[in-house]
Design a protein around this nucleic acid. Structure first.
Lengths: 205, 205
DNA sequence: CCTACCGATCGGTAGG
DNA sequence: CCTACCGATCGGTAGG
């Protein structure tokens, strides 16, 4: 992606978030960069394309980060902790993108909308599998895994939706909410369990 | 409100949810009722007014239901349980309105948008107070009450945001998520605690 | 509640 | 990257 194109996209992210997709005119994006609207078309093919790119890139990286987090641990409790931390960090760091993804799905035209929803449900599915595994292993006391997984996801998205961001760092949000997530699936003392391997071999130190 | 007006509003709720505010034309609302767009203006003054009314009415009733739920119990654990049940029921029952409230804030024009956000933060504030009280009483093990309150609210909103509703009744959602909420604030066995008064007088039966 | 229609907005193109 | 401009859409009004 050319540097120019990158700047246009960044301006679109800010403006789509602040004014909504339909409330943002190509003129606004242009004037943010000291250009006229028609000049933008040397770099992007349409306003829809900008929205599409922003939403797909964000959702893809969300999945990628989730997979990295899960792969970084073998214990399921620890996997959930890290997945939740990664999710919260991602939503906090990419606050405008998270808000666009939440607010502007109706503005995305078909067939892209259906494709995006498919991609998003891939992400949900990964979460459901993770919770299912913890239940199968007897680590979690959860009756409805799907309901639980979706709720955890929304806790993460929530951090980007408050009108004013809380005065907490990305890390504080991540640690607090991962702990909350573990408690909500029935892990009794998530703080104490942090980092402890729980193999049959208790004499690991 | 005249019956006609009520029908127009109901059609707007469905269409704003399905196609988004800007994706819905006055023509669409009209044809949903077998009328032409200009005839709608005998009943409503503008498309914005419809959106405004839908969003304010929904938020107001959310606050009202919360206050009723809290007033229905004196024990804080029980209050949180009932408040969460009420919130989840409300979001599940008024699914399209919940989705509109979540997606279309950018479509609401000033000064209404600022007023709506104020009303919505009144609701959040009630939740924060409730959690604060539980912490003060030593019932909840929560470090950041604001973060926790906001997260519980988003769990409730979440039930309306899944692409396809889960095959669970309003009551099943309410009971499961209220239990999840209590666990997440550190109540150890929320199911067992249900309905049990916890006065100093243990011989209540 | 209708038909006819206005006025403004705005994404995008032409042509340089 | 610009100016000039088109074409379509659509909320809302006039007048009956």
């Amino acid at each position: 992606m050319s540097p120019r194109r990158r700047l246009i996209r960044d301006a679109a992210v800010v403006l789509f978030d602040e004014r909504g997709y339909h409330g943002t005119r190509m003129r606004d994006i242009g004037s943010h960069l000291g250009m006229r609207a028609p000049s933008l078309y040397n770099h992007v093919s349409s306003k829809q394309e900008l929205l599409r790119e922003i939403m797909f890139d964000f959702t893809s990286s969300m999945i990628r980060e989730h997979e990295l987090a899960v792969a970084s641990a073998s214990d399921t409790v620890e996997r959930v902790r890290r997945a939740m931390e990664a999710h919260v960090r991602h939503c906090a760091r990419y606050r405008p993108e998270t808000r666009i993804l939440t607010h502007e799905v109706p503005s995305l035209e078909e067939p892209s909308r259906a494709e995006l929803l498919d991609l998003r449900s891939e992400f949900s599915h990964l979460w459901v599998e993770l919770i299912d595994q913890g239940v199968a292993e007897g680590e979690f006391a959860v009756q409805r895994t799907k309901l639980t997984a979706y709720s955890l996801i929304h806790i993460g998205v929530g951090v980007a939706l408050w009108t004013r961001p809380l005065p907490l760092s990305e890390s504080e949000l991540a640690y607090s909410l991962a702990e909350m997530a573990l408690r909500s699936v029935g892990v009794q003392d998530p703080a104490a369990a942090a980092g402890e391997p729980k193999s049959a071999d208790g004499a690991s130190v």
